[in-house]
Design a binder for these strands. Sequence first.
DNA 1: AGGGGTAAGTCATACGTATTACTGGGACGG
DNA 2: CCGTCCCAGTAATACGTATGACTTACCCCT
Lengths: 340, 340
Amino acid sequence: MPMTSRPTSRDVAKAAGVSQSTVSLVLGGKWPGRVSPATAAAVQDAAERLGYRPNRAARSLRLGSTRTVMLVVPTLNAPFFGAVYEGAARVAAQHGFGVVAYPWPEYAGPADSPFAAPDEAIDGILASSLAEDALSGFARTPVVMLDSDPAAEAPTVVFDVQGGMRAIVDHLAGLGHRRFGHVASSIDQWTFHARGRALADAVEAVPGATLVREDAALDVADAKDAALRLLGGGGPDRPTALICDDDVMSAGAYKAARARGLEIPRDLSVTGFDDVLLAAALEPELTTVRLPAGELGAAGMDALLRLLEGGRPGSLSLPGELVVRGSTGPAARGTAPIRG
Amino acid sequence: MPMTSRPTSRDVAKAAGVSQSTVSLVLGGKWPGRVSPATAAAVQDAAERLGYRPNRAARSLRLGSTRTVMLVVPTLNAPFFGAVYEGAARVAAQHGFGVVAYPWPEYAGPADSPFAAPDEAIDGILASSLAEDALSGFARTPVVMLDSDPAAEAPTVVFDVQGGMRAIVDHLAGLGHRRFGHVASSIDQWTFHARGRALADAVEAVPGATLVREDAALDVADAKDAALRLLGGGGPDRPTALICDDDVMSAGAYKAARARGLEIPRDLSVTGFDDVLLAAALEPELTTVRLPAGELGAAGMDALLRLLEGGRPGSLSLPGELVVRGSTGPAARGTAPIRG
DNA sequence: AGGGGTAAGTCATACGTATTACTGGGACGG
DNA sequence: CCGTCCCAGTAATACGTATGACTTACCCCT
């Protein structure tokens, strides 16, 4: 007789000749001392044979926990956040947790969430790249912040922006560059504020180095305009290296260079940040800092799970890695003031 | 006295002076004829005042439905699938459904799913760009396939690949091109098979046109090699236009062109497919076909929800749109056989 | 021999909801 | 004036699990 609907723990009990409670004890792993090894084995065997899987809804109802975590990101329409998701989901799955992603832009508070009742339907929140108070509607829900202000109350996992920027500046300074232009993101997010500060600090540490900054939205066209402003008329005082807040903006810098007739890296060096697919697709390939987005998601989920278990996870900083490609080269002699 | 834990339907009942069943009826919207308008209003008011939200787990348990859908994609680490997710999640949210994404590559069957018991924890599956039999472990679960073989049993939403390729070929033919090279993806997926067939058909419709094809993996470096093979020694018979299976491969074609000293679009035209961010970041900007990824997800979710309601949704084909940018131009005269 | 202790299970219950079967009472028809 | 019908709502129950409170039977010790 074919089992038409899914087997329950009671079916397993019947098959093993025990009570439902015993099944629950055994499968819950808390049988030592309560159930004899022989019985436990019989139960596990029966469960296996029937292909029993516990009902998630029933378990959630009983335990008051859904074993689901919500990931809040600005968008999934960017490989970076996709990688964060994958890293987080991998770790979550290992602990029997599911992950629901929620892209932020249209987000207008808990009532607007994909879940009508976020406080109930999820056990915790992993929030990337957004202000902490944006989550004020989720009182009672444990939160871990990613790539956000570590000064916040919640545990935080960030990239070592400082180290990354210093690596870039050191690399360029070693090539003889002294006049830097910063194609900066105007987005009001901690990570970009941090990048700006880190860059300023790093440049300050280079004797005789100068830094000019122009802000732009996080897209190619706007970044191109900012880069053009930085390059100005192309006089002898123009920057010899453009440091961009992320890889996409670098593409704008490339366009600006071409518009000015400058060849990369001969006449101008350009750097990015993040190392997304685009970086290696550009011509020449982009020197940038690789941020381990997957690890960010994984480490964040790890912290969140510890938080859910009542622990008190600390904040964490993940190092980036300078990837030197073809967009950086020695500072052109010709652009230095030759005489006077 | 502050309400410490979440209000239940029983709390609402108490506050409104009715029974729990009445609350459930009213909030379920099936009260007309069973409950007086005045009472219904009182219940709704009480629910509002207490900030009542139904418990998802309890409802799932009762109804045997989780109101959650699983989205299976090859990866989220690609903007295309991120957009699919966003479109699907938007539609799902409007119907009170949540979406759990599951990246495919590590996928090894239901037991490996983020949910230990997929058949129970989800109501349906939206699967993108993968073979139907890959889901054989999910018997009993309704499935809608995206960008996959429409001949499959499950309802399908695809792009009009045929129309897109024809638009590209017509555009190029109008510019005088006759010798085409196809930088083809070697991935065994319906969409790429379809693109290959569609391209062959479209070229065949152009009198005197020829088509050569080289296969490559879906990354920049491999696509570059394939493009180099297509360009050969650069003799008079070389293709004047390279049609790539997607935008990323186009980046490889760009590199091949530069390696051969060919300028785009003067000496060589290049086209892509998909219109991801990269397309507009390349220099010159890429002529490609924009595929509405978000709409794909939305339409797929729409079909799936109808399927879950017992409907019988048909398959659907979404049109792409040719986006002409700077990578295509008139066929160079110099490359045509001048004499003989 | 009687009492206490423990090993090995079972019983009963609660989680919060949706729904079916039921009830009290008023209106209405004959 | 009595039977019938319907309105407005309620009581009871089931979904499948986890767990604290019980129960039994056996063993050991004095």
